[in-house]
Design a binder for these strands. Sequence first.
DNA 1: AAGGTCATCAACCGCCGACGC
DNA 2: TGCGTCGGCGGTTGATGACCT
Length: 262
Amino acid sequence: MGRSPCCEKAHTNKGAWTKEEDQRLIAYIKAHGEGCWRTLPKAAGLLRCGKSCRLRWINYLRPDLKRGNFTEEEDEVIIKLHGMLGNKWSIIAGRLPGRTDNEIKNYWNTHIKRKLISRGLDPQTHRPLSGGNQCNTSSQPQLVTMTAEAASKLTDSTTEDGHSGGIIIDRDEEYRCLDLNLDLSISLPYNPCSKPSTSSEVLMPPTAAEAATPTSAPPYAQTICLCYHLGFQRSESCSCQTNSGQHVLRYYRPLEEGQHIK
DNA sequence: AAGGTCATCAACCGCCGACGC
DNA sequence: TGCGTCGGCGGTTGATGACCT
């Protein structure tokens, strides 16, 4: 009947973690790695649910966590990414090294929401609170255009060794989220990454000249792997280049002015 | 000083997708 | 193909401390 519990609740501790529990968890993970969370508590001698251990480790005990206040720069990155992605906290956290999704979610709810309201913006839609653009009537986040240029900037900040280079949106770049339109589509790729590629190769948008030149390709054939531009590496979420032919989430570059569907 | 309210954030809950059998 | 398990995610809750009256 129903879902089986993730662990034996009758014999697990709940609530705040003690120092001793933290030490046990840290010691175990240092010795054995993260491995299987379900079996970890027993192996580590903890009376905790595996999920609880995972959360504690990821949100609090991980050595690479950056504690402390968010910087103004981080604020702006969160706002921009939230404008593009909505409440995708884990993806946003992926672009802020040392920050966790939980931390960002909390920070959003306690600080940034108010900040946006004080700017006269709806924190969910990123539209002006009073009046504003009438075309957005849903409560969905206002998806915004990430221009090919902006997308390239996201990519550029990723370092060779596969780690994010930190803040990935140029602060000086004009805040475009309010009046632009991001076309995120899920569809069969027209030309699915079939070309053999090196690990550093990226599907790049066409040049202006290329874009202006009518080709036999469908209008949305110019694809950019969204996963990549959000900062994922091949070994992470992006399966674009390894699963050619499968359905992947892509960012489809919108038509340029003057381009027409043939 | 005491009680009430607000703000913060760690932790929990339930759902979902991926994966293996 | 269906089912069970697991990890991960986003929403929510509750404990705690700060601030206000």
